[in-house]
């Protein structure tokens, strides 16, 4: 059974049909990258999987571990193991990172029927992760994404990824706006997340991310459909030739 199966997925945003029959299967242990020209529906795909309000599925199905998730609430999908690293992380003034993470970790634990992690164990765990991502602990006391630089926001997404330990990570342009050092830190975080029972779907414009996180599969999304799939070499080819030769 595959971790994620997307079949004949059609979706609308504000009355406009964006996804027009996407087919994609992701198995545990795999890394997939989706590339494609602007406006091709890449971010829509990740938002639809996460269940963002305003994205309407008109046809097709999305299954996680064989179960359709389309009727599930946003938080139920999260509790089932779907994690979306936001392209534009949202600010929540006054709610500290630590408080937010604790609420999130506790909710996920409750959904699994686990005891909540003790405050001390939680703090220790988060501090470790923050250390790996070169975020100083002061960062954890600040409001969620409040006044963060672009790079800090993206690292914060990875911090959450590592703290929440989902089975499927959707990374929506996590590399955009990062300098080379930050890109390395973020990539290291994603690589440390990877395990046999987990998978990553990266949405990106740039080959350079794929230098740090090696994809098993590269897909080109254009006009709301996946028009070409291949291995890592496809990304290099796209880098050299652009998308034009595929869409003509």
């Amino acid at each position: 059974m595959s971790l994620l199966e997307i079949s004949n997925l059609h979706a609308d945003v504000a009355g406009t049909n964006i996804l027009k029959g996407v087919e994609l299967t992701i198995n545990a242990g795999e890394v997939h990258a989706i590339m494609g020209p602007n406006g091709s529906g890449k971010s829509t795909l990740s938002n639809v999987v996460a269940g963002r309000p305003g994205y309407t599925v008109t046809k097709g199905d999305v299954r996680l571990n064989g179960q359709s998730i389309l009727d599930m609430e946003v938080e139920e999908r999260a509790q089932a193991g779907v994690f979306l690293a936001f392209q534009y992380p949202v600010e929540i003034p006054g709610v500290s990172n630590m408080e937010f993470l604790k609420a999130s970790v506790d909710s996920l634990a409750a959904a699994r029927g686990d005891e909540p992690l003790s405050a001390a164990a939680f703090m220790k765990r988060i501090r470790e992760i923050a250390g790996e991502l070169s975020l100083d602990t002061d960062f954890l006391k600040r409001g969620v994404n409040e006044g963060f630089s672009g790079g800090e926001k993206k690292r914060n997404e990875i911090l959450q990824l590592l703290a929440l330990e989902p089975s499927l990570a959707l990374l929506d342009e996590t590399d955009s706006g990062l300098d080379i050092d930050a890109l390395q830190v973020v990539s290291r975080g994603v690589n440390s997340f990877l395990r046999e029972d987990r998978a990553v779907l990266m949405i990106t414009h740039y080959q350079r991310l794929l230098d740090y996180i090696k994809p098993d599969f590269v897909h080109v999304l254009s006009g709301g459909q996946i028009i070409r799939s291949g291995d890592a070499s496809l990304a290099l080819e796209l880098e050299a030739k652009g998308y034009g030769w595929l869409t003509q």
Binding site: G51, L84, F86, E91, S104, S107, L164
Partner: peptide, 25 residues
């Protein structure tokens, strides 16, 4: 809606999310 979506995507239900956002405010 974006704040609510972020909280929900991290597994937190609506009522709890609203209470958290309001107390942050």
């Amino acid at each position: 809606d974006d704040q609510l979506f972020l909280c929900q995507q991290r597994g937190i239900d609506t009522e709890k999310a609203v209470a958290m956002i309001v107390s942050g405010f």
